[in-house]
Amino acid sequence: MIIAIAALLVLGALLYTLIVRPTSLPEPEALSPFRHVDEAKARIYENLRDLQFELRLGKLSDEDYARTKVDLQKELAKVLADADALKAELGVQTTSKAVKPKAAEFVCPHCAKKFKEAMKFCGACGKSMEAGA
């Protein structure tokens, strides 16, 4: 009895671990080369937003606010310039989109097939995914 349970335990563990069917492999993630640029951008926007709020609270004088705001905008411009440089270097086009709170679905206006990622052309019918095109 105990030997049977022991054998079952070992066998179960081995089979579950070793037999991986191709369908259970995860799809490769879409990695954006602009990720760190986006992070830097988000950081500055966050800081700008905080700065504005602190002004409203009266924690800063108008001069302090104006000075820091100009600095932040300069930093932001630098990040945007870097992003453009990277774009040129990689030779790609990009779009900026706000992340919606829920996973957005992109529907092909021609064949109504749904996709997780935004695409320029539909993966099913091949027509342009942009509305009105």
Binding site: P28, L31, S32, P33, K41, G91, Q93, S96, A118
Partner: peptide, 23 residues
């Protein structure tokens, strides 16, 4: 409430002769 709702840069297409960058 509003954190993380910033614009995200996505690659949508290849403009020139370069190959697409996926990684």
């Amino acid at each position: 409430k509003v954190k993380m709702q910033y614009a995200r840069t996505e690659v949508v297409g290849v403009s020139t002769k370069h190959a697409p960058v996926t990684k």
